[in-house]
Design a binder for these strands. Structure first.
Lengths: 193, 193
DNA sequence: AAATTACATTGATCTATGTCAACAAAATTA
DNA sequence: TAATTTTGTTGACATAGATCAATGTAATTT
């Protein structure tokens, strides 16, 4: 349960065994079956979540009823609604398990305590958020400049593993295109090569 | 030059006068005239920049020659290419002054020194990046779910000041639509009300 | 003040992608 | 294993927004 967790943390910061043991006490282990929700739109996101095992997605539903996926979270990633978590306001996002999951949850008070007692985590979370911001900026620029096919091929290149574990219509939703369009793009690409 | 800078910092963290004086020594003041560039695509972004006065934009040019604006930066905001700044790899972005500007620049080594000597800045930058991430996530979701008109009205509501200082075709570029489309949307809206 | 450049508008037409609908194949569940 | 649900494909058609082009006007520069 904690091996990957320890590995990911120590990739970015140095902490003592004592500090890590203290850290562990602040997290709540939780298992989720496929299709279960970790967060529902309208609820406050009480926890920031580390994925030890499995796969989840966060998504919104717009006023036309269409789903839009913000993020997939595989093992070793974090997921949550950062806005709702920090402000304690209702979330616009749903978070759903796409596979059976093993998770580590940390509440806001525990997070504050962790940052206070082990300041190295200040740095850890800054780096995580930095990387997330860089990725989100890229995705935004891609959304504005690329065709549907370019978006798909970029995803395939940058994220090959995704296709094996995520249903196609969710890939389409992540890319901001319809499943029909993605299906056609794939068959065109297959025909060409 | 430093009043707004001091104000913005102390809105988020508490630092002593000594610490602020030390901090000031790490920043390089710079003035830019309208249309001058702070960063050009292909160059490494050597500085993270606080805007004391004026207005800038960061943008990319895609392979079709179309500009896409990532950010406008008004007084009190930061601008730079976070990816290039952190990795020292060539930037994909241009940063251009839209008005005459007064800026405070900090290099990577100085930033590292600042974070080391005044750890409260670790928290300051984490919060900045957090807020930037939240805003970028929102913008991304909006890009995927909203019509051109919705994007425009949301911008007008959340950011009324923008329209007075930024030319319309750049607003269009920021929203990911053409200037012609924005012009038509505006005339439709004016006709309706 | 004249010349040039940047910015905005409007019309005609085009196109990438969406929508709707029918169908089939997998995968889950009963 | 039958029934249901989820997922993916394909065709016909619709449409939001892009593109191209012409024109006017405001703002800079000379």
């Amino acid at each position: 349960m904690y091996e990957l967790f320890y590995k990911k943390i120590t990739e970015l910061i140095t902490i003592s065994e004592t500090e890590f043991n203290f850290c562990k006490t602040l997290f709540l282990p939780k298992k989720l079956r496929k299709k279960q929700y970790l967060l529902q739109e309208g609820d406050v996101c009480k926890y920031n979540t580390f994925v030890s095992k499995g796969l989840l997605r966060s998504f919104t539903i717009d006023n036309r009823g269409t789903e839009h996926i913000l993020q997939f979270a595989f093992e070793g990633w974090w997921i949550g609604d950062i806005y709702s978590f920090l402000t304690e306001k209702p979330s616009l996002f749903n978070i759903e398990a796409l596979e059976e999951c093993e998770l580590l949850l940390i509440s806001k008070p525990s997070m504050d305590l962790l940052l206070e007692k082990v300041p190295a985590f200040e740095r850890y979370f800054r780096i995580l958020i930095q990387n997330n911001l860089i990725a989100t900026q890229r995705r935004l620029m891609g959304t504005l400049s690329e065709t549907a096919e370019e978006k798909y091929t970029n995803l395939v290149n940058n994220f090959p593993g995704c296709l094996q574990r995520v249903p196609q219509h969710m890939i389409a939703s992540y890319l901001g295109i319809t499943r029909e369009t993605l299906s056609r793009i794939r068959s065109q690409m297959a025909a060409r090569k």
